[in-house]
Design a protein around this nucleic acid. Structure first.
Lengths: 123, 123
DNA sequence: CTGAATCCGCCGGGATACTG
DNA sequence: CAGTATCCCGGCGGATTCAG
C-alpha cells in the first residue's frame, strides 16, 4: 500500500520515532554493533522490541544487517547505511535544541549530551 | 513530576511528535491564526484533538494563545513563540530530508513541500 | 466561535516462553 | 547468540454531545 504524508517532517518522524530508536541511532552512529552489544547498552529493552525497532530501521533503509556464521551461534552486526548517516545533521541539531530547552526547564533532565550523535558526522 | 530523557533528540521528539503537530507548526509558521482558520485548513481533525494538540504545544512553550472579546463569540489567536520559531531550521531540514527520501521510494507520497516551513525562518 | 466531557478503538510497546 | 510467537496493557487520537 502507498504511504502518504502531508509533509516531509512527518515522513522523517515516521523513521526516527520509536521509544528506542534515538538511542539505537546514537550507538550505531559510534560504530557497527552486535545484537548483544546493543542489549548491553539498553538493558531495559525486551528482545522482541529490540528486534522490532531494528527491523523497522532496516526496512526504512537506515541500518544494514549482516549475519556471520553458518550455524548457531550466529554473529549479527548492525550498522548505519549512507542514508542513516545522512540523518546525522538533523539528529545533532535536535539533540542540541532539546538540551538547550532543558537548561530553561528545571524539571527536565537529559542524561547524555549531543556528543553521542556527532560521531555520525565523522563517517 | 520530573521529565527525564536519554538524549536531546527524545526531548525534541516529545515536542513535535503528534499526528497534527507538524501541520499546525507549518500553518502557524506562516502567520498567527484563529481557531476557525486552523479548522478550515485541517478539516479532518476533531475539535477535541485540535484543542489537545494546541494545548500541548502551548504548554511546551512553542505557541502562544491570545483571547480577544469579553463574551462569546470569542476570537482566539494562536501564534509561534520565539522558542517555536527556533524550531524552524530543524523543521525545514526534516522536511527536506523526508522529501529527498520520498523521491527514491516510488510508493511514498508527500503532498506539500518544505516551502511551507521556510516562512518560519523569516520571522 | 471555542472548548470541555465522555466513551471507545487501535496500535506501540512490554512480559514471557519457545526455536535453531 | 539471535529471533519468533502470544498475550496483554496503556495511552493517543477519533466521534459525539454538551456549554459559555
Amino acid at each position: 500500500m502507498k504511504q502518504s504524508y502531508n509533509n516531509g517532517v512527518e515522513a522523517t518522524l515516521g523513521v526516527i520515532s520509536g521509544k528506542w530508536k534515538p538511542q539505537l541511532l546514537c550507538y550505531l552512529g559510534n560504530r557497527p554493533q552486535r545484537t548483544c552489544d546493543l542489549r548491553q547498552e539498553l538493558p531495559a529493552i525486551s528482545q522482541k522490541v529490540l528486534t522490532q525497532q531494528l527491523r523497522e530501521l532496516e526496512r526504512d533503509g537506515i541500518i544494514m544487517r549482516r549475519v556471520y556464521g553458518e550455524r548457531a551461534p550466529f554473529k549479527v552486526i548492525y550498522e548505519l547505511t549512507a542514508l542513516g548517516k545522512s540523518l546525522g545533521q538533523i539528529l545533532v541539531q535536535m539533540s542540541e535544541w532539546g538540551e538547550q530547552r532543558a537548561t530553561q526547564l528545571p524539571d527536565m533532565e537529559i542524561r547524555n549530551d549531543h556528543a553521542g550523535f556527532t560521531h555520525i558526522l565523522e563517517g
